[in-house]
């Protein structure tokens, strides 16, 4: 079962402020989901290292060439010096 602390921790590492309403109803909803995916535990664990990612050959990789044709311009929160203004760090 997801405890209040655990939910808080998940919200903190996910950087999401939960409303009071969400803090109240999420534990039960998330529990149900976790309970549902818990069935995966039945799977034998010796298969756990099988990964099914695609493969590509080294030769197909991008050549090291600079291409800046459509250089991006950010407009949001830009200072006169070209810096992006973000929230304070401390």
């Amino acid at each position: 079962m997801i405890s209040k602390d655990e939910l808080e921790y998940l919200a903190q590492i996910s950087k999401i402020n939960l409303s009071e309403d969400e803090a109240k109803k999420f534990p039960e909803q998330l529990d149900k989901t976790i309970e549902y995916i818990d069935i995966l535990e039945e799977l034998a664990s010796d298969d756990s290292n099988v990964l099914d990612l695609q493969e590509m050959k080294f030769d197909e990789l991008r050549d090291d060439v600079v291409r800046m044709s459509g250089a991006l311009r950010i407009t949001k929160n830009l200072t006169e010096d070209g810096f992006l203004r973000g929230p304070k760090m401390k």
């Binding site: 991008r62 090291d64 060439v65 600079v66 800046m68 250089a71 991006l72 950010i74 992006l84």
Partner: peptide, 30 residues
């Protein structure tokens, strides 16, 4: 030694450039 960045074609040498002029959709995480 690289001309371009690891995952996009912006310049690898970012030094002495005006801020946020060596960027593209990819390295800005659009």
């Amino acid at each position: 030694v690289l001309e371009s960045k690891l995952f996009c074609s912006c310049r690898g040498n970012y030094r002495d450039l005006r801020p946020n002029t060596n960027i593209c959709e990819t390295c800005c995480g659009l």
